[in-house]
C-alpha cells in the first residue's frame, strides 16, 4: 500500500449556532469552522492504516469555499500532507458536486490505494460522499465500516448495518466510509500541532481536479433555511424541586404515562 487519502470537511461547529427566535433563521456568527467530528475518526483510521505501511503516504483531502485555514488542524491529526481545493464556487456545493471535486483530487493524486471517508458530516449528514466517490472513481465502495484489518492489499472490513455485522473482503483500491466507532479520535498533542507546520499543504484548482467552472455550478436552489418551530410546550415547572416534581407527576399521571 503506497498512498492513503482521507477526505475531511471543514464545517461550522453546530454547538455555537443560535436560532433567532423571531425570524427562525440561524445565527452563525459565533460558530467557528472545525474539522467535522466524524472525519476525525476517518483521519485516525488513516493514521492506524499507515502504521501498518510505514512507507505509505497519508494524504488529507478537502474542498470548499474557504478551507485553507483547515490544513494545519488536519495535519496535526496525522496526515503527511494535505491537498485542498479552495473555490468560492463550492459554497453551495451538494454531494453531487463535492464528490466530483473529491474524485478529481483523488485522480490528481494518482495511485491512491485506499480512500477513507467518514459516515457523514455534522451539518448536512447526507452520508453520500463515500459511495458516490467510489462510483465516480470506479472503486468498490464499502460503507459503515466499524473495523479495518489489512493483509497486503486485501482489506477485511466489518460493516455495521441495521441487521448486524457484515464482514467483507475487498482488494485495494477501495473507498471506505467509516463509522465513528471504528476507532477513537484522539485530541492532537502540542507536539503534533507544532509539527504540522513542517508538513506541506498543497493548493489545487478546479483545473487540477479536471473540472470546469460549469461542472461545479450548484444544481440546487436553496429556497430557505429555517429552524422548525418546536411543537413542544416547554412548560417550566418551577425551581422549587418538591413542588415541580409534584406538578410533573400529576401531569404525567394525567397523560396516563405512569
Amino acid at each position: 500500500m503506497k498512498k492513503i487519502a482521507v477526505c475531511y470537511k471543514w464545517v461550522l461547529n453546530d454547538a455555537d449556532i443560535r436560532v433567532n427566535e423571531k425570524s427562525r433563521e440561524l445565527d452563525l456568527e459565533k460558530s467557528k469552522p472545525q474539522i467535522n467530528e466524524y472525519d476525525r475518526n476517518g483521519l485516525e483510521t488513516g493514521v492506524k492504516l499507515k502504521a501498518l505501511f510505514p512507507e505509505a503516504e497519508l494524504v488529507g483531502v478537502t474542498c470548499g469555499p474557504d478551507v485553507e485555514p483547515s490544513t494545519k488542524d488536519a495535519l496535526s491529526r496525522g496526515p503527511d500532507t494535505v491537498y485542498f481545493l479552495n473555490d468560492a464556487a463550492l459554497a453551495e456545493a451538494d454531494s453531487t458536486t463535492t464528490s466530483k471535486v473529491l474524485a478529481g483530487i483523488v485522480r490528481h493524486l494518482g495511485n491512491v490505494d485506499v480512500v477513507i471517508c467518514s459516515e457523514g458530516s455534522s451539518d448536512v449528514y447526507a452520508q453520500q460522499n463515500g459511495p458516490r466517490l467510489a462510483a465516480l472513481l470506479g472503486y468498490p465502495s464499502v460503507s459503515y465500516v466499524s473495523a479495518v484489518s489489512v493483509d497486503g492489499d486485501v482489506l477485511t472490513l466489518d460493516r455495521k448495518l441495521e441487521q448486524g455485522t457484515e464482514t467483507v473482503t475487498v482488494k485495494a483500491p477501495v473507498v471506505i466510509s467509516v463509522s465513528p466507532d471504528v476507532c477513537d479520535a484522539p485530541i492532537p498533542s502540542v507536539k503534533q500541532i507544532l509539527g504540522a507546520k513542517k508538513k506541506p499543504a498543497h493548493a489545487l484548482t478546479l483545473a487540477d481536479a479536471g473540472l470546469s467552472a460549469d461542472a461545479v455550478k450548484p444544481l440546487i436552489t436553496v429556497n430557505s433555511v429555517k429552524a422548525p418551530l418546536s411543537s413542544r410546550k416547554a412548560v417550566n415547572l418551577g425551581e422549587d424541586v418538591p413542588e415541580a416534581v409534584a406538578k410533573l407527576v400529576k401531569q404525567l399521571a394525567g397523560e396516563g404515562l405512569l
Partner: peptide
C-alpha cells in the same frame, strides 16, 4: 498565531471533555 489558536482549541477540548 495559528499555532497558538490551535493549542488553545486543543487545551479547551481537553478541558471540556476530560
Amino acid at each position: 498565531t495559528e499555532d497558538q489558536k490551535l493549542i488553545q482549541n486543543m487545551a479547551r477540548e481537553f478541558a471540556e471533555k476530560e
